[in-house]
């Protein structure tokens, strides 16, 4: 069933809230991976507030759906969501990145409830997710495994090794998302590397592939629902996104991959976010 108007409204207002939290944590932490946290937000919100079967009071529940943030530097944005879902006391986020905090820039599965894999070294998540999806099959379990990779991250060959074996194993319970914001650290992906034609690559590797606007809740929902119906193939949803989405002075600027905000810039960022959402509501 497609997302209802009310659901879309709810998800967008969550995304607005999360984006403001990302800005706020970036401010209090003294810096953070803000660009990629903002680009990934809509997909993560759709998953966490609609599609993932999870119970934050039981983070180790065996039958839960799994989510791996392979682009682990998005930990800042992910933590904002996990806290809001109730996995931990959100006041802990005031100490994000501070000495002795459970939260480093990259979330740690031994310290953060709701985080299943310590990522941050790029190119690990798709293989881990492939193992989780295969594990569900072997155990006869119904959980689905979702994983988000960065587009720059796809330069790592390990992703393509996992892509081969996931298709070989017919892991239709595996849903991948590419945060296709077209930037890495040193610049645009297509200037440094050559990922395109990206969709064709995954098709050739035997995946079910969709390309969507990664900031459009209705489209995200539609794609996930299609993926859930895949009979034999793993699905890769290539999400066209903007690095730094909603904050005009960050948008599509790789120098905001990692950055800090003073209180003026923070307030300016809040305004940008509110302005954006006042238009789409």
């Amino acid at each position: 069933m497609p997302l209802s108007k009310d659901e879309i409204k709810m998800l967008n207002s969550k995304a607005q809230e999360i984006r403001k939290k990302i800005v706020d944590i970036t401010f209090t932490a003294g810096g953070g991976h803000v660009g990629g946290s903002l680009s990934q937000t809509d997909v993560l919100v759709a998953l966490y507030y609609k599609y993932l079967k999870i119970d934050p009071s039981k983070p180790d529940w065996e039958d839960r759906d799994r989510f791996i943030l392979s682009k682990g530097h998005g930990g800042l944005g992910w933590a904002a969501i996990l806290g809001d879902k109730g996995y931990f006391d959100t006041s802990l986020l005031k100490n994000f990145n501070k000495t002795g905090s459970p939260f480093g820039m990259h979330l740690d599965s031994l310290k953060v409830p709701g985080c299943d894999a310590s990522t941050g070294s790029l190119g690990h998540g798709l293989a881990i997710a492939t193992g989780l999806a295969k594990g569900a099959k072997l155990k006869g379990k119904k959980w689905k495994t979702c994983v988000m990779v960065g587009d720059g991250e796809l330069c790592e060959g390990s992703n393509w090794e996992a892509a081969i074996i996931a298709a070989r194993n017919k892991l239709n319970n595996l849903i991948g998302f590419v945060d296709r914001n077209k930037n890495m650290i040193d610049g645009p992906t297509e200037e440094i590397s050559q990922l395109e034609p990206l969709a064709d690559k995954f098709v050739a590797f035997g995946w079910n592939v969709m390309s969507i606007d990664g900031h459009d809740m209705a489209k995200i929902g539609e794609a996930i629902e299609k993926a859930l119906k895949s009979r034999t193939k793993p699905t890769m949803i290539i999400c066209d996104t903007i690095k730094g989405k909603c904050v005009d002075f960050m948008e599509d600027d790789p120098t905001w991959h990692y950055g800090g905000l003073d209180s003026d810039k923070r307030d300016q960022a809040f305004e940008c976010i509110d302005k954006y959402y006042s238009k789409i509501k």
Binding site: G104, M105, H106, S121
Partner: peptide, 8 residues
């Protein structure tokens, strides 16, 4: 890179 955590 102490703030980055164990992966770094």
């Amino acid at each position: 890179f102490g703030q980055a955590g164990s992966t770094h």
